[in-house]
Design a protein around this nucleic acid. Structure first.
Length: 563
RNA sequence: GCCCCAGUAGCUCAAUGGAUAGAGCACCGGCCUUCUAAGCCGUAGGUUGGGGGUUCGAGUCCCUCCUGGGGCGCCA
């Protein structure tokens, strides 16, 4: 758990304080100390610009402040060089001996080496996916699940206790409409001329599912009263088809949920009534025009009131959301809840925050992650996605063509805020040059070296890590040590896309090491490596495999031994 | 009209307010007798949409304009 930047910031702080005590520096409030990775290696491994920020406060030149800080800097075996560069940066360089020791450390700790304890065991729920279960997932929802699962992975590595949940919207009008559409296709498959309902689901898959149900259940449903038949076909469509395909897609992408939470359960056991009376007590409800409204405008003038129970007596989606979040926080006691939504739900965010206040909960305990919708390009043309109109590009189709890992990598590699254009044809064409293979290939290469070493009976056992002095070896270790910082950055910003960049960099420095440093001796001619080097490098290679596999697993992908 | 998000290399995208803005793809030129060539090396590519401001320092923060995406339902 090497939180190098964190520790350096503390040490810098100590140094400034000490210099102030000794009157080498005047008294001033120490600004936040940010330790960063400089772009060029000539500035060392880490640097800070705190002296520039302090110049005005101290009424001194940044360079002079830096000299005092360096003079008072605590001794540490971790660093072997402290330097100052104009106009007042302090540059830190990690000691080779410390870097080498990390190889042993990684071998001892395994894949949890880079984990940190930011979360201190707090219970966090990440709810993602949660598409209406009225059809197969399309590419846009692929982004949702990949982002959500990536966030969950990163938070788990950062010391949170994470629960992954899919909210199944199995109540409400969309579901009824879906049931009616499905019933029509089912009846049609049996030669009964039932028309699609107005505004019904037109997608080809509804026909397909209708046919399948007709085959499996014959005309059983046609004989029932319509109400009962719709209820039955809703259940069949949901469990056997819609959720079944969601589960299969998630599996193909390497995603598994802890809980599939059904909306309908919110309306059982009187839970919903409880919440309504709670809101009534807090004077957040009002009856108007035959409906029950949530009076968000009482708390914040900028907000609009929202219908909770429609004039037809049916609760709306917001009613479910209130009950659902009451359940998350109060019934199940999560410390923090993260919901992952498409940007088309952005207007909903302020109401959710108002709801938290109305329930007497700190709004900061609920984080809404919004990702920009995926634009699809196919055959050179932009496609407008609509599940009801049946113009979606199925995620399954893409996974079959390109593979789950490649789809996942592409969808993960962009920040949630970026409006990504997914060119389906290009993704297929370039599937061979997808960076995911570069990363996995590096892992397979490592596995290959270790296989060969075992076959030729070379062992890392007595390897002396202090022999790892080649620039390519040290560069590799530096990058491995950096994983903690990447986890921290991804966890604090809820931005797992950093992992994809890190994995590529790590694969790259490994490949350069592979090019420059022979691990196993050649069988003829110049062996390329002494017995001692082989043993030490085998240790390094094993450690590299651990860190690379960790990065790959955090992205939810497989780390193959052969390709 | 109001609100949210974005605009960075030919394309797809990175870059906790820091030093010379980086990758991948595509293009061009080299490299397999060696632990995996799904690889390596090299060349080229930029007024970070325009303008103003804050700051020692701005792709990043603020204002404004332009362009694109999304939202402003008793749908979810």
């Amino acid at each position: 758990m090497p939180r190098v930047q964190h520790d350096l910031a503390q040490m810098t702080h100590q140094a400034i304080r000490k210099a102030q005590k000794k009157k080498d520096l005047p008294r001033f409030d120490i600004p936040e100390i940010v330790i960063e990775r400089p772009k060029s290696t000539e500035w060392g491994d880490y640097s800070t610009a705190v002296c520039l920020a302090a110049a005005r406060l101290a009424a001194m030149a940044p360079l002079d402040i830096a000299k005092q800080v360096v003079k008072r800097f605590p001794k540490t075996a971790r660093l072997d060089d402290l330097s100052i560069s104009a106009p007042g940066f302090i540059n830190f360089s990690l000691a080779d001996s410390w870097l080498q020791s990390q190889v042993e450390e990684i071998l001892a700790q395994g894949e949890t080496y880079a984990d940190i304890n930011l979360g201190e065991g707090k219970r966090v729920q990440v709810e993602f996916g949660s598409a209406n279960p009225t059809g197969p997932l399309h590419v846009g929802f692929g982004r949702n699940v990949v982002l959500g699962d990536g966030i969950a992975n990163v938070l788990a590595a950062a010391g949170y206790q994470v629960q992954r949940e899919y909210y199944v919207n199995d109540a409400g009008t969309q579901m009824d409409l879906f049931a009616e559409s499905l019933f029509a296709r089912y009846a049609q498959a049996l030669g009964d001329d039932t028309p699609l309902p107005e505004g019904g689901y037109q997608g080809e898959y509804v026909t397909r599912w209708g046919k399948a149900i007709a085959q499996r259940h014959a005309d059983k449903l046609l004989g029932m009263p319509r109400r009962q038949a719709l209820e039955q076909i809703k259940q069949i469509g949901l469990e056997e088809h819609a959720l079944g395909s969601v589960r299969a897609d998630c599996e193909a992408l390497g995603i598994s949920y802890d809980e599939w939470f059904h909306e309908t359960t919110l309306y059982q056991e009187g839970q919903f009534q409880e919440i309504m009376s709670l809101l009534r007590q807090r004077d957040m409800l009002e009856e108007r025009e035959g409906a029950v409204w949530f009076t968000a405008s009482k708390h914040d003038e900028r907000l609009k009131d929202e219908v909770i129970i429609r004039s037809n007596g049916q609760p709306g989606y917001f009613a479910s959301d209130i009950a659902y979040h009451y359940n998350k926080f109060i019934e199940r006691g999560f410390d923090w809840v993260i919901d992952v939504w498409g940007a088309d739900h952005q207007g909903h965010v302020p109401r959710m925050k108002a709801m938290m206040k109305a329930l007497g909960l700190d709004p900061d305990r609920l984080t809404l992650i919004l990702y920009q919708l995926v634009a699809i390009k196919k055959g050179g043309a932009d496609i407008r996605l609509s599940k009801r109109a049946g113009t979606l590009v199925e995620l399954r189709e893409l996974i079959n063509d390109v593979g789950g890992d490649a789809v996942r990598f592409v969808l993960l590699s962009r920040a949630a805020d970026s409006q990504m254009v997914f060119d389906v044809d290009l993704a297929r064409e370039q599937s061979d040059s997808n960076p995911v293979y570069y990363v996995q290939y590096a892992h397979a290469r490592i596995a290959s070296i270790l296989r060969e070493a075992a076959k030729r009976e070379f062992s890392a056992k007595n390897g002396d890590v202090s022999l790892l002095t080649h620039p390519a070896e040290l560069a590799l270790i530096r990058k491995m040590v950096d994983l903690s910082a990447v986890i921290e950055k991804a966890a604090t910003n809820l931005a797992p896309h950093h992992l994809t960049h890190y994995a590529q960099e790590l694969a790259n420095v490994f490949t350069l090491f592979y090019r420059d440093c022979r691990v196993l001796p050649r069988k003829s001619g110049d062996p390329g490596a002494t017995a001692e080097e082989t043993a030490a490098r085998l240790k390094l290679v094993r450690a590299a495999r651990i860190i690379l596999a960790r990065a790959i697993h955090l992205m939810g992908m497989s780390a193959p031994d052969r390709m």
